[in-house]
Computed example of a mutant assay.
Amino acid sequence: MCFWEVVGQWCLELAGTALNSFCPVETLLLTKFGGKRRSRRWRTGGGLIYASWGRFLGFCRRFRTLGVKVFEKGQARPIFPRKLPHILVTDVAGEVVEVGEGVKNFKVGDKVVAMLSYGNGGGLGEFAAANAEMVVARPSEVSAAEGAGLPVAALSAHWALTKDAEIKLDGTGKQKNILITGASGNVGLYAIQLAKLENAHVIATCGARNIELVRSLGVNEVLDYKTPEGEAVKSPSGRKYDFVIHSASQAIPWSVFEPNLSTNGKVIDLTLGPSSLFTFVLKKLTFSKKTLVPLIISLKGENLDCLVKLVKEGKLKTVIDSSFPLSKAEDAWAKRLDGNNTGKIIVEH
Protein backbone atom coordinates (compact mmCIF):
# COMPACT_ATOMS: atom_id res chain seq x y z
CA MET A 1 0.00 0.00 0.00
CA CYS A 2 1.15 3.51 -0.75
CA PHE A 3 2.95 5.23 2.12
CA TRP A 4 0.40 8.05 2.27
CA GLU A 5 -2.79 6.08 1.84
CA VAL A 6 -5.56 5.91 4.37
CA VAL A 7 -7.94 3.03 3.83
CA GLY A 8 -11.57 3.65 4.67
CA GLN A 9 -14.52 1.31 4.99
CA TRP A 10 -17.74 3.18 5.04
CA CYS A 11 -20.00 0.72 6.78
CA LEU A 12 -20.08 1.41 10.49
CA GLU A 13 -21.15 -2.07 11.50
CA LEU A 14 -18.13 -3.54 9.68
CA ALA A 15 -15.60 -1.08 11.07
CA GLY A 16 -13.57 -3.81 12.70
CA THR A 17 -13.17 -5.99 9.61
CA ALA A 18 -9.54 -6.84 8.87
CA LEU A 19 -8.61 -5.81 5.35
CA ASN A 20 -5.86 -8.37 4.99
CA SER A 21 -8.38 -11.22 4.91
CA PHE A 22 -10.63 -12.28 2.05
CA CYS A 23 -13.60 -9.96 1.99
CA PRO A 24 -16.46 -9.49 -0.51
CA VAL A 25 -16.52 -6.02 -2.01
CA GLU A 26 -19.43 -4.56 -3.94
CA THR A 27 -18.67 -1.93 -6.58
CA LEU A 28 -20.12 -0.20 -9.61
CA LEU A 29 -17.72 -0.47 -12.53
CA LEU A 30 -17.40 1.41 -15.79
CA THR A 31 -16.34 -1.43 -18.08
CA LYS A 32 -16.68 0.09 -21.53
CA PHE A 33 -16.72 3.62 -22.92
CA GLY A 34 -20.10 4.74 -24.18
CA GLY A 35 -21.97 4.22 -20.95
CA LYS A 36 -21.60 0.47 -20.25
CA ARG A 37 -21.73 -0.07 -16.50
CA ARG A 38 -22.27 -3.10 -14.33
CA SER A 39 -22.27 -4.02 -10.67
CA ARG A 40 -19.84 -6.60 -9.35
CA ARG A 41 -19.06 -8.36 -6.12
CA TRP A 42 -15.49 -9.60 -5.90
CA ARG A 43 -13.12 -11.02 -3.35
CA THR A 44 -9.76 -9.51 -2.57
CA GLY A 45 -7.14 -10.98 -0.28
CA GLY A 46 -3.46 -11.22 0.50
CA GLY A 47 -3.18 -7.55 1.36
CA LEU A 48 -5.15 -4.34 1.64
CA ILE A 49 -8.16 -3.72 -0.55
CA TYR A 50 -7.68 -0.91 -3.02
CA ALA A 51 -11.19 -0.85 -4.34
CA SER A 52 -13.81 1.62 -3.21
CA TRP A 53 -15.29 3.52 -0.33
CA GLY A 54 -18.97 3.07 0.13
CA ARG A 55 -20.38 4.60 3.32
CA PHE A 56 -21.78 7.77 1.82
CA LEU A 57 -20.75 9.40 -1.40
CA GLY A 58 -22.03 12.31 -3.43
CA PHE A 59 -22.40 13.19 -7.07
CA CYS A 60 -21.90 16.78 -8.14
CA ARG A 61 -22.93 18.82 -11.10
CA ARG A 62 -19.43 19.50 -12.30
CA PHE A 63 -18.64 15.79 -12.10
CA ARG A 64 -21.69 15.23 -14.23
CA THR A 65 -21.02 17.79 -16.90
CA LEU A 66 -17.26 17.41 -17.04
CA GLY A 67 -17.03 14.02 -15.39
CA VAL A 68 -19.88 11.72 -16.30
CA LYS A 69 -19.83 12.46 -20.02
CA VAL A 70 -16.06 12.60 -20.12
CA PHE A 71 -15.68 9.39 -18.16
CA GLU A 72 -18.29 7.40 -20.02
CA LYS A 73 -17.15 8.48 -23.48
CA GLY A 74 -13.45 8.19 -22.68
CA GLN A 75 -12.80 11.79 -23.73
CA ALA A 76 -10.18 12.40 -21.03
CA ARG A 77 -8.05 9.32 -21.54
CA PRO A 78 -5.25 8.63 -20.84
CA ILE A 79 -5.46 11.07 -17.92
CA PHE A 80 -8.60 9.56 -16.40
CA PRO A 81 -9.85 6.99 -16.03
CA ARG A 82 -6.41 5.44 -16.22
CA LYS A 83 -7.71 1.99 -17.10
CA LEU A 84 -10.85 -0.09 -17.29
CA PRO A 85 -12.70 -1.39 -15.41
CA HIS A 86 -12.98 1.87 -13.44
CA ILE A 87 -14.83 2.34 -10.14
CA LEU A 88 -16.74 5.59 -10.37
CA VAL A 89 -16.96 8.64 -8.05
CA THR A 90 -14.44 10.60 -5.97
CA ASP A 91 -16.44 12.20 -3.11
CA VAL A 92 -16.82 10.11 0.02
CA ALA A 93 -17.27 10.17 3.79
CA GLY A 94 -17.21 7.49 6.44
CA GLU A 95 -14.94 5.74 8.94
CA VAL A 96 -11.27 4.75 8.79
CA VAL A 97 -10.50 1.05 9.27
CA GLU A 98 -6.76 1.03 8.58
CA VAL A 99 -3.96 3.48 7.92
CA GLY A 100 -0.72 3.21 6.02
CA GLU A 101 2.78 3.57 7.36
CA GLY A 102 3.69 7.14 8.16
CA VAL A 103 0.11 8.38 8.46
CA LYS A 104 0.07 10.26 11.77
CA ASN A 105 -3.11 12.35 11.67
CA PHE A 106 -5.69 9.55 11.48
CA LYS A 107 -6.42 6.33 13.32
CA VAL A 108 -8.87 3.47 13.00
CA GLY A 109 -12.38 4.59 13.89
CA ASP A 110 -11.95 8.23 12.86
CA LYS A 111 -14.91 9.75 11.02
CA VAL A 112 -13.64 11.51 7.89
CA VAL A 113 -14.47 13.20 4.60
CA ALA A 114 -12.21 12.56 1.61
CA MET A 115 -11.70 13.19 -2.05
CA LEU A 116 -10.30 10.33 -4.10
CA SER A 117 -8.12 10.86 -7.16
CA TYR A 118 -9.80 11.34 -10.53
CA GLY A 119 -7.49 8.78 -12.07
CA ASN A 120 -8.31 5.98 -9.64
CA GLY A 121 -11.84 6.91 -8.55
CA GLY A 122 -13.25 4.26 -6.25
CA GLY A 123 -16.25 5.92 -4.58
CA LEU A 124 -19.02 3.54 -5.60
CA GLY A 125 -18.19 0.59 -3.43
CA GLU A 126 -17.57 -0.65 0.09
CA PHE A 127 -13.85 0.14 0.49
CA ALA A 128 -11.29 2.59 -0.86
CA ALA A 129 -7.78 3.93 -0.42
CA ALA A 130 -7.22 7.68 -0.27
CA ASN A 131 -4.24 9.98 -0.10
CA ALA A 132 -4.04 11.25 3.48
CA GLU A 133 -3.51 14.80 2.22
CA MET A 134 -7.09 14.88 0.93
CA VAL A 135 -8.69 13.32 4.02
CA VAL A 136 -10.08 15.54 6.81
CA ALA A 137 -11.78 14.89 10.12
CA ARG A 138 -15.57 14.90 10.18
CA PRO A 139 -17.06 16.16 13.47
CA SER A 140 -20.20 14.56 14.86
CA GLU A 141 -22.24 17.61 13.89
CA VAL A 142 -21.62 16.84 10.19
CA SER A 143 -23.40 13.79 8.81
CA ALA A 144 -21.63 11.52 6.37
CA ALA A 145 -24.12 12.50 3.68
CA GLU A 146 -23.44 16.21 4.22
CA GLY A 147 -19.69 15.63 4.19
CA ALA A 148 -19.69 13.44 1.11
CA GLY A 149 -21.34 16.19 -0.89
CA LEU A 150 -18.51 18.64 -0.32
CA PRO A 151 -15.28 17.65 -2.11
CA VAL A 152 -15.56 18.45 -5.83
CA ALA A 153 -18.47 20.90 -5.91
CA ALA A 154 -17.82 22.85 -2.74
CA LEU A 155 -14.06 22.94 -3.35
CA SER A 156 -14.72 24.36 -6.82
CA ALA A 157 -17.02 27.06 -5.43
CA HIS A 158 -14.60 27.81 -2.60
CA TRP A 159 -11.60 28.20 -4.90
CA ALA A 160 -13.48 30.35 -7.41
CA LEU A 161 -14.64 32.72 -4.70
CA THR A 162 -11.66 32.85 -2.33
CA LYS A 163 -8.83 32.75 -4.88
CA ASP A 164 -10.17 34.14 -8.14
CA ALA A 165 -12.77 36.52 -6.64
CA GLU A 166 -10.76 37.14 -3.43
CA ILE A 167 -13.77 36.68 -1.14
CA LYS A 168 -12.79 36.36 2.53
CA LEU A 169 -15.87 34.49 3.86
CA ASP A 170 -15.84 36.49 7.11
CA GLY A 171 -17.88 39.53 6.10
CA THR A 172 -14.98 41.96 6.44
CA GLY A 173 -14.51 42.79 2.76
CA LYS A 174 -16.14 45.40 0.58
CA GLN A 175 -19.52 44.29 -0.77
CA LYS A 176 -19.27 42.85 -4.27
CA ASN A 177 -21.87 42.16 -6.90
CA ILE A 178 -21.60 38.51 -7.93
CA LEU A 179 -23.53 36.70 -10.66
CA ILE A 180 -23.76 32.92 -10.32
CA THR A 181 -24.99 31.10 -13.41
CA GLY A 182 -26.37 27.60 -13.02
CA ALA A 183 -27.08 28.51 -9.41
CA SER A 184 -29.23 25.43 -8.75
CA GLY A 185 -26.40 23.12 -9.80
CA ASN A 186 -24.18 21.66 -7.11
CA VAL A 187 -21.34 24.18 -7.52
CA GLY A 188 -23.86 27.00 -7.70
CA LEU A 189 -25.69 25.96 -4.53
CA TYR A 190 -22.45 26.06 -2.56
CA ALA A 191 -21.27 29.26 -4.28
CA ILE A 192 -24.42 31.12 -3.21
CA GLN A 193 -23.89 30.24 0.43
CA LEU A 194 -20.18 31.03 0.42
CA ALA A 195 -20.69 34.37 -1.34
CA LYS A 196 -23.30 35.39 1.23
CA LEU A 197 -20.75 34.84 4.02
CA GLU A 198 -18.98 37.89 2.58
CA ASN A 199 -22.31 39.79 2.42
CA ALA A 200 -22.04 39.89 -1.35
CA HIS A 201 -25.02 41.00 -3.41
CA VAL A 202 -25.76 37.77 -5.27
CA ILE A 203 -27.64 37.52 -8.55
CA ALA A 204 -28.42 34.00 -9.71
CA THR A 205 -29.67 32.28 -12.84
CA CYS A 206 -31.58 29.00 -12.69
CA GLY A 207 -34.69 27.27 -14.01
CA ALA A 208 -38.13 28.39 -12.88
CA ARG A 209 -38.69 25.31 -10.68
CA ASN A 210 -35.61 26.10 -8.56
CA ILE A 211 -36.14 29.83 -8.00
CA GLU A 212 -37.54 29.40 -4.48
CA LEU A 213 -34.70 27.07 -3.54
CA VAL A 214 -31.97 29.54 -4.49
CA ARG A 215 -33.89 32.37 -2.81
CA SER A 216 -33.96 30.33 0.40
CA LEU A 217 -30.14 30.27 0.35
CA GLY A 218 -29.96 34.06 0.42
CA VAL A 219 -29.86 35.14 -3.23
CA ASN A 220 -30.79 38.81 -3.69
CA GLU A 221 -31.97 38.62 -7.30
CA VAL A 222 -32.98 35.64 -9.44
CA LEU A 223 -33.21 35.30 -13.22
CA ASP A 224 -35.01 32.49 -15.01
CA TYR A 225 -32.40 31.54 -17.59
CA LYS A 226 -35.08 30.71 -20.18
CA THR A 227 -36.52 34.24 -20.21
CA PRO A 228 -35.11 37.09 -22.37
CA GLU A 229 -33.82 38.78 -19.21
CA GLY A 230 -32.16 35.57 -18.10
CA GLU A 231 -30.56 34.99 -21.47
CA ALA A 232 -29.12 38.52 -21.30
CA VAL A 233 -28.00 37.95 -17.65
CA LYS A 234 -28.96 41.52 -16.80
CA SER A 235 -29.37 42.35 -13.14
CA PRO A 236 -33.01 43.36 -12.43
CA SER A 237 -31.68 46.21 -10.27
CA GLY A 238 -29.24 47.34 -12.98
CA ARG A 239 -26.11 46.35 -11.10
CA LYS A 240 -22.87 45.59 -12.89
CA TYR A 241 -21.06 42.43 -11.87
CA ASP A 242 -17.68 42.52 -10.17
CA PHE A 243 -17.44 38.74 -10.58
CA VAL A 244 -19.30 36.04 -12.44
CA ILE A 245 -19.13 32.41 -11.34
CA HIS A 246 -20.12 30.71 -14.60
CA SER A 247 -21.14 27.19 -13.63
CA ALA A 248 -24.14 26.74 -15.93
CA SER A 249 -24.05 23.71 -18.19
CA GLN A 250 -25.09 25.75 -21.21
CA ALA A 251 -22.53 27.99 -22.89
CA ILE A 252 -22.88 31.77 -22.51
CA PRO A 253 -20.75 33.81 -24.91
CA TRP A 254 -18.44 36.56 -23.75
CA SER A 255 -20.50 39.09 -25.71
CA VAL A 256 -23.37 38.48 -23.27
CA PHE A 257 -21.23 38.83 -20.15
CA GLU A 258 -19.11 41.82 -21.17
CA PRO A 259 -21.72 44.64 -21.10
CA ASN A 260 -22.89 43.47 -17.68
CA LEU A 261 -19.46 43.60 -16.05
CA SER A 262 -18.10 46.42 -13.92
CA THR A 263 -14.97 48.24 -15.07
CA ASN A 264 -12.68 45.51 -13.72
CA GLY A 265 -15.22 42.72 -13.85
CA LYS A 266 -14.07 39.13 -14.08
CA VAL A 267 -15.79 35.99 -15.35
CA ILE A 268 -14.59 32.80 -13.63
CA ASP A 269 -15.48 30.06 -16.08
CA LEU A 270 -16.05 26.50 -14.89
CA THR A 271 -17.31 25.29 -18.26
CA LEU A 272 -13.99 25.61 -20.12
CA GLY A 273 -14.48 25.20 -23.86
CA PRO A 274 -12.61 26.45 -26.94
CA SER A 275 -14.50 29.75 -26.94
CA SER A 276 -13.69 30.54 -23.31
CA LEU A 277 -10.03 29.62 -23.81
CA PHE A 278 -9.86 31.94 -26.81
CA THR A 279 -11.42 34.76 -24.78
CA PHE A 280 -9.02 34.15 -21.91
CA VAL A 281 -5.99 34.43 -24.19
CA LEU A 282 -7.39 37.43 -26.09
CA LYS A 283 -8.08 39.42 -22.93
CA LYS A 284 -4.58 38.66 -21.67
CA LEU A 285 -2.96 39.78 -24.90
CA THR A 286 -4.99 42.98 -25.11
CA PHE A 287 -4.55 43.87 -21.42
CA SER A 288 -8.31 44.20 -21.04
CA LYS A 289 -9.64 45.35 -17.66
CA LYS A 290 -12.59 43.03 -18.10
CA THR A 291 -11.33 39.48 -18.04
CA LEU A 292 -12.31 35.84 -18.25
CA VAL A 293 -10.30 33.18 -16.44
CA PRO A 294 -10.77 29.40 -16.47
CA LEU A 295 -11.16 27.81 -13.07
CA ILE A 296 -7.97 25.91 -12.30
CA ILE A 297 -8.08 24.38 -8.84
CA SER A 298 -5.24 23.33 -6.61
CA LEU A 299 -6.86 20.69 -4.40
CA LYS A 300 -5.90 21.17 -0.76
CA GLY A 301 -6.99 19.34 2.34
CA GLU A 302 -7.00 22.60 4.31
CA ASN A 303 -9.74 23.98 2.05
CA LEU A 304 -11.83 20.83 2.47
CA ASP A 305 -11.33 21.12 6.23
CA CYS A 306 -12.52 24.74 6.09
CA LEU A 307 -15.71 23.64 4.32
CA VAL A 308 -16.40 20.86 6.82
CA LYS A 309 -16.05 23.39 9.65
CA LEU A 310 -18.50 25.74 7.94
CA VAL A 311 -21.02 22.91 7.79
CA LYS A 312 -20.41 22.20 11.48
CA GLU A 313 -21.05 25.87 12.31
CA GLY A 314 -24.29 25.89 10.34
CA LYS A 315 -22.95 28.36 7.78
CA LEU A 316 -22.99 25.93 4.86
CA LYS A 317 -25.27 23.04 3.96
CA THR A 318 -25.39 20.29 1.40
CA VAL A 319 -28.63 20.23 -0.57
CA ILE A 320 -29.60 16.59 -1.05
CA ASP A 321 -31.85 15.50 -3.90
CA SER A 322 -32.20 11.79 -3.16
CA SER A 323 -30.56 8.78 -1.56
CA PHE A 324 -29.92 5.24 -2.84
CA PRO A 325 -28.51 2.11 -1.22
CA LEU A 326 -25.22 0.86 -2.65
CA SER A 327 -27.07 -2.07 -4.21
CA LYS A 328 -28.94 0.51 -6.33
CA ALA A 329 -25.83 2.51 -7.26
CA GLU A 330 -26.45 1.93 -10.96
CA ASP A 331 -29.89 3.53 -10.62
CA ALA A 332 -28.31 6.50 -8.85
CA TRP A 333 -25.76 6.87 -11.63
CA ALA A 334 -28.50 6.67 -14.27
CA LYS A 335 -30.45 9.41 -12.50
CA ARG A 336 -27.35 11.60 -12.49
CA LEU A 337 -26.95 11.05 -16.21
CA ASP A 338 -30.55 12.11 -16.75
CA GLY A 339 -29.73 15.45 -15.12
CA ASN A 340 -33.11 15.91 -13.45
CA ASN A 341 -31.80 16.19 -9.91
CA THR A 342 -31.43 19.35 -7.86
CA GLY A 343 -28.76 18.81 -5.25
CA LYS A 344 -26.68 15.80 -4.40
CA ILE A 345 -27.52 12.19 -5.13
CA ILE A 346 -26.28 10.18 -2.16
CA VAL A 347 -25.37 6.48 -2.22
CA GLU A 348 -25.37 4.89 1.23
CA HIS A 349 -23.96 1.59 2.39
Rank of each mutant, 00 (worst) to 15 (best):
E302L: 10
V202D: 04
S276V: 10
V281W: 14
S247A: 14
E313C: 07
V7T: 11
S249H: 10
D269S: 15
R55F: 15
E302D: 11
T181L: 08
A191M: 06
A132F: 04
V7P: 01
W333T: 07
E221T: 12
Q9A: 07
I211P: 04
R336S: 14
T227L: 03
L189F: 07
E212A: 09
A183V: 04
E5I: 02
A145T: 12
Q175P: 13
E212R: 01
G314Q: 03
H349L: 15
F80T: 13
V142K: 02
K317L: 03
L84N: 08
I79Q: 12
G67Q: 01
E72Y: 00
F3P: 01
M1V: 13
I203L: 11
W159T: 15
E26Q: 14
A144C: 13
Y190V: 10
S143T: 12
L194T: 08
G35D: 00
N264M: 14
P274F: 15
L48S: 00
K344Q: 09
R64S: 10
K226G: 02
G58W: 14
F127R: 13
G46F: 00
N210M: 04
E101I: 01
N20G: 05
K317T: 09
K176A: 12
S323C: 12
T44M: 11
T27E: 04
D331M: 14
F278C: 06
G218P: 07
Y225I: 02
G265Y: 01
W333M: 09
K111V: 11
E198P: 05
V152F: 03
E166N: 14
E146L: 01
P139E: 03
D269Q: 09
R55C: 14
K266G: 04
K196T: 09
L29G: 01
V92K: 08
N20D: 12
T44Y: 06
